[in-house]
Amino acid sequence: MIQLPTHGRYDYSAIAKRPDFDWPGGKRLAVYLGLNLEHFAFGEGLGAELAPGGPQPDVLNYAWRDYGNRVGAWRMLEMFDVLDMPASVLANSVMYDYAPDLMAAFRARGDEVVGHGRTNSERQSELPPDQEDALILEATEVLTKAEGKAPKGWLSPWIAESRVTPDLLKKAGYGYTLNWCMDDQPVWMRTEHGPLLSIPYPQEANDIPSIVARKDGADVFADIIIDTFDEMFEQSKAQPLVMGIALHPYLVGQPYRLRHLRRALQHVCQHRDSIWLTTAGSIFDYCVETEAVPGPP
C-alpha cells in the first residue's frame, strides 16, 4: 500500500466521534476576532495588492495597505468598543516602532496580542532553521517587552511554515498556533518540545482569501461571516466549536467594507448571551485548565 508523506503532528479524528465538553458557562460556540496589524517594507518584499503592482516602489499598493494602520484600524477599534467585542491582535513586531500609539490603544482595551512575525513583507518558511528561530525570538522579545508578558500564540505571516516551525514555536515558549485550519475544534499537535495547541483560524471567514483572492464584494464577505456563524451555531449543539473571524484593517477598515462588517458583527453580538465571545488566548487557557481537548498520544 502506498504511504504518503505526512507531517506527523496529529492523527486523523472525526469530529462526530470525539468526547463532548462545554465552553465556559455551558456555551457551545466560542467566537473570536483575529485582527491583523501589519506593516510592510517600502519598495520591496511581499504584500497584498489592490491592483496589479507596477515596478517598485509600488506606491499605490504600499499606501493602500498603510491606510489600515493610519485609519482603518482606528475605525475598527471604535466599532469594537461600541459592540463591546474583545480582539486577538495579531501583531507584526515592527508595528511597535511604526505605530506605537495604535498598539497602545489596543493594549488599553485589554486585548490579547498574538505573535505575527516581524513583518508581512517576509515569509519565515523560506529561512534556514537557525534564521527562522532567530526571527521567532526577535519578534517574541519585542512583544514581551512592550506588553509586559510573553505572547501565548503565534500566526505566521502568510501562514508560512517550515517543517520545523511548530518545534521552534514550542521551544520559544508558545502554547498555541493559529497556522493550521484543519478543524473547528482545538487540536493538540506534537512537537519535539511537547504539545502545541492548534486553535482554528479561518481561511474562509477571512477577508484576505475572500476579498483579495476571490474578489468578493463587501456584502458577500459580511454574508460569509453571518452564514458561517448561523451554521456553526446550529452545529455546536452536537459538538463544541470555535469560530474565528480573520480581519485586516486595510481591507475591512475601508469605509464601505466597514459598514458591511459592522452589520455582520452586530448579528453575532445579538447572540452574545448564547455564545462565548472571547479571545484565542482564553480558548487556549480553558483547554489547558480543563483538559477538555485530549492531548497527543
Score class of each variant (00 low, 15 high):
2 I>R: 06
4 L>C: 11
5 P>Y: 01
10 Y>Q: 10
11 D>W: 01
11 D>G: 13
14 A>R: 10
15 I>V: 14
16 A>E: 09
19 P>W: 00
21 F>D: 10
25 G>F: 03
27 K>V: 06
30 A>F: 09
31 V>P: 15
32 Y>Q: 06
38 E>W: 07
39 H>N: 13
39 H>V: 10
51 A>S: 12
53 G>T: 03
55 P>C: 03
57 P>G: 08
59 V>W: 03
65 R>Y: 05
71 V>H: 12
78 E>G: 15
80 F>R: 05
85 M>D: 04
88 S>H: 02
105 A>I: 02
107 R>H: 09
110 G>R: 01
112 E>N: 03
116 H>T: 03
118 R>A: 07
118 R>P: 07
119 T>P: 14
120 N>W: 13
121 S>G: 12
125 S>R: 07
132 E>C: 07
133 D>R: 14
134 A>G: 07
139 A>F: 06
141 E>D: 12
142 V>R: 11
143 L>C: 10
144 T>C: 07
144 T>L: 11
145 K>W: 00
148 G>T: 00
152 K>C: 13
154 W>V: 07
156 S>V: 05
156 S>T: 04
160 A>L: 05
161 E>H: 11
164 V>E: 09
171 K>D: 08
173 G>T: 00
182 M>S: 14
183 D>Q: 03
184 D>Q: 12
186 P>H: 01
187 V>P: 15
187 V>I: 13
191 T>H: 08
196 L>F: 09
196 L>M: 09
198 S>C: 12
198 S>L: 00
200 P>G: 13
201 Y>G: 12
203 Q>L: 13
205 A>K: 00
207 D>V: 04
209 P>Q: 01
217 G>K: 01
217 G>M: 02
217 G>I: 05
223 D>Y: 00
225 I>T: 11
225 I>E: 04
229 F>W: 03
230 D>P: 14
241 L>V: 11
243 M>H: 13
243 M>Q: 12
246 A>T: 08
248 H>Q: 13
257 R>W: 04
267 H>K: 13
270 Q>L: 08
272 R>D: 07
274 S>C: 07
275 I>A: 08
275 I>H: 05
281 G>M: 07
281 G>L: 11
284 F>P: 05
293 V>D: 10
296 P>W: 00
